[in-house]
């Protein structure tokens, strides 16, 4: 790949507070930040942040498997809870039977929508790279954003239809923790994809600046991957 062309848009100086006085012009003492430089910086930042987020994911999974293995007071799957031997929930009220498993249907829909949204970011990226015009980029970004909104909405809806609440023991807690973490990540990705859509409609991503979309794609793909992992664990390892 080549980065011979400088990013001449005003955003070219967005990451660095005070670059060349006039975009594209040589400033004797100032800095002339190349697109390569800029992409290098931001990619590194993104990979570091994804690494940190990955550790967070690992800790979520650790929580899941640790509590599942312990099954303290039978409050993971409620096997030991019965009328004769009631477990208590977070309020001290008895739980008289096994805690119901969450319906994986909802989680799968959310994960699928997120994956599709990430796929559309990828399409937007390749459109920008081919210099296919601002309409192609913004359409892909817009459709992706809509899918993300569906995922987001469904995630909120899933909270309403769960067969348990946060106080119903470790399984319920951890499952809702996964959902909450997915929700937070989707909101973050939602802001970024909204920005992608608006900026693409303004024609910011054409030709030389396609690598800006690639950055968003990395993040979207990571969110999709982490969502799929959480959904898979939540569905398979009850």
């Amino acid at each position: 790949m080549s980065f011979t062309e400088t990013d001449h848009g005003s955003e070219g100086h967005g990451a660095h507070g005070h670059g060349a006085a006039v975009p594209g012009a040589e400033n004797p003492g100032g800095e002339h930040e190349t697109a390569f430089k800029r992409d290098q910086k931001e990619r590194l930042m993104l990979w570091l942040l994804i690494g940190g987020d990955g550790l967070f994911l690992v800790l979520e999974l650790f929580t899941w498997f640790y509590l599942r293995a312990l099954n303290t007071s039978g409050l993971w799957n409620g096997a030991k809870c019965s009328k004769a031997n009631p477990c208590t929930d977070g309020l001290g009220n008895p739980i008289n039977g096994p805690i119901q498993k969450a319906d994986p249907k909802h989680a799968i829909i959310i994960a699928a929508c997120t994956v599709i949204a990430a796929g559309f970011v990828w399409i937007a990226e390749s459109a920008a790279r081919r210099d296919a015009g601002k309409r192609a980029v913004s359409t892909a970004a817009g459709v992706g954003f809509l899918f993300l909104l569906v995922a987001l909405g469904w995630q909120i809806y899933q909270f309403q239809v769960l067969p348990f609440t946060t106080i119903d023991g470790a399984y319920a807690s951890t499952y809702e923790f996964f959902m909450g973490s997915t929700l937070a990540h989707l909101i973050l990705l939602g802001f970024i994809m909204l920005g992608l859509w608006i900026r693409a409609s303004k024609g910011r991503y054409a030709g030389a600046t396609w690598y800006r979309v690639r950055l968003i794609r990395f993040f979207a793909v990571w969110i999709a991957v982490s969502t799929v992992i959480l959904v898979a664990v939540g569905a398979l390892f009850y």
Partner: peptide, 8 residues
């Protein structure tokens, strides 16, 4: 919210 991560 009453989750139970740390309370045996």
């Amino acid at each position: 919210t009453g989750t139970s991560f740390f309370v045996p």
